[in-house]
């Protein structure tokens, strides 16, 4: 899309007003270098002690923090255990034994055949889906947060349209801080690391907009189950 003449003029006038306000000139090498330096060096704030202290059990911290935010967290040994955990959770919450997931290879390898009447669907979420199942790119211990990257493997709508969201988190990918998760993104996804949507999810949907009382299940999922898996 080409910029209409007016918009181009606004762009240039805003940038020159900024420079005038800062007493700066366009393309001042020193200012460009200072910004470039920060963009390259990516300095970090000191990591919180709760995850930086030596001997910290990141999985335990991740679990505790996520539970504080009203999610359910279950640790499993691996793929063999996950279908039963999911079925048990859905039954306990009176949910249909049906879920939808994307092309994620680990999740696609889960075998629900042993659970009677269990139905799995694939693709982006539909409005009447009851449960979405996603795999996290990483877990972040400092606040019990899961990072999810959108795409065919894990469609973003799976985490917002269904009433129940289930996320599988590889134990080996639970890192200490947000910055550590971003470093993983850059390392594994190259020079343009961001997917269309990167979701940091730290609990079920909630609101306090009516009378200041917290209600779970505002627009997104009413419940969130995180399954930490040991075989990844």
């Amino acid at each position: 899309m080409s910029l209409p003449g007016g918009a181009r003029a606004s762009r240039d006038s805003i940038l020159s007003k900024i420079r005038a306000s800062l007493g700066a000139t366009p393309n001042d090498p020193a200012r460009l270098a200072a910004a470039e330096k920060r963009l390259m060096a990516k300095p970090r704030a000191a990591a919180p002690q709760r995850v930086a202290a030596s001997g910290t059990d990141l999985v335990a911290r991740f679990t505790e923090e996520l539970q504080r935010q009203l999610a359910t967290v279950v640790a499993t040994a691996g793929a063999g255990d996950i279908p039963a955990v999911i079925a048990g959770y859905l039954r306990a919450n009176n949910q249909p034994l049906r879920l939808r997931h994307g092309n994620d290879p680990y999740i696609s390898s889960l075998d629900f055949a042993g659970i009677p009447d269990f139905e799995t669907l694939k693709g982006r979420a539909a409005p009447d889906d009851s449960t979405g199942l996603s795999a996290a790119f990483a877990g972040i211990a400092e606040t019990g947060t899961m990072a999810l990257t959108s795409g065919a493997d894990n469609p973003v709508t799976l985490g917002f349209l269904p009433d129940t969201h289930i996320i599988v988190v590889p134990r080996s990918r639970i890192v200490a801080t947000y910055e550590d998760a971003f470093a993983l993104l850059r390392q594994e996804r190259g020079p343009t690391p961001m997917p269309r949507t990167l979701n940091l999810i730290s609990g079920p949907s909630r609101t306090a907009d009516i009378g200041g009382r917290i209600v779970i299940g505002a627009h997104g999922p009413r419940r969130l189950l995180a399954i930490v898996t040991g075989d990844l």
Binding site: T143, T197, L198, N199, L200, S202, G203, P204
Partner: peptide, 9 residues
């Protein structure tokens, strides 16, 4: 500690 959703688009 953090909101339920922090979304990068």
């Amino acid at each position: 500690e953090i909101t339920s959703y922090t979304t990068f688009s």
